[in-house]
């Protein structure tokens, strides 16, 4: 059961590559694998919190004030995560910068609250948050890893290629973010098309 859900989060309904949710942080913080993973974990934490509370309160919140309530709940968790990170994980807090408060406008979180947590049980909502979070984290980590390898010749700070070799720095720069994501999406499309044909 959970395995099937996990596949949904990682592949069939992958938030970044399939649903095109949260592209701003996906492009902005993936200059290296570690910041990509950090962003993924921070977003997962907020997603867990908001899905939990929204699912618990789904019968209490009147439909008319649904969206404002969700926004308040999400913003609260974003701020909590931000404060905790600043206190205990400062280097990551600094590396992610403005994209931590901007988790609040990540469509993935509002989308899951609105489309899933407000209609499902607590257990299912939590599982949804976990698998979607894992999918988002893996996507960002993967994109970060690709850009770090191509741009700096290293992975998670570990140098793969001798530092004397000039790597394609453009992949660490903003244009490389768009190009990497575009090519990765194309590759996924290609696999899907091949599968359909097979």
């Amino acid at each position: 059961m959970f395995g099937k859900e996990l596949i949904r989060g990682i592949y069939t309904e992958n938030p970044v590559f399939r649903l095109l949710f949260g592209l701003c942080p996906a492009l902005a913080v993936t200059t290296a694998a570690d910041t990509g993973l950090g962003m993924g974990l921070a977003t997962t934490t907020v997603l867990l919190g908001s899905n939990l509370v929204v699912s618990l309160l789904k019968n209490v919140i009147p439909p008319a004030v649904r969206i404002p309530s969700f926004i308040v709940i999400i913003a609260t968790f974003v701020t909590l995560v931000g404060m905790t990170m600043e206190a205990f994980f400062y280097p990551m807090f600094e590396a992610l910068g403005i994209f931590i408060p901007l988790i609040v406008v990540n469509c993935l979180i509002l989308g899951r609250a609105e489309a899933f947590a407000s209609k499902n049980t607590l257990g299912r909502s939590l599982v949804d948050a976990i698998v979607m979070g894992i999918g988002f984290t893996i996507s960002l980590g993967l994109l970060g890893a690709v850009r770090e390898i191509l741009g700096s010749g290293s992975i998670l700070g570990f140098q793969l290629v001798p530092g004397t070799v000039d790597m394609a720095l453009v992949f660490a720069l903003p244009p490389g973010a768009f190009i990497s994501l575009g090519l990765m999406l194309a590759a996924l499309n290609y696999i899907a098309i091949r599968r359909k044909e097979a």
Binding site: L20, V170, L173, P174, P175, G176, A177, F178, I179, L181, G182, L183, L185, A186, A187, N189, Y190, I193
Partner: peptide
């Protein structure tokens, strides 16, 4: 446009080239 690239992927590539110009 080659089928796997159609839609968002090619738009991202175009955006990448625009970003190069802005850099």
């Amino acid at each position: 446009v080659p089928k796997p690239l159609a839609g968002v992927p090619v738009a991202l590539l175009a955006a990448g080239i625009l970003a190069l110009a802005f850099s």
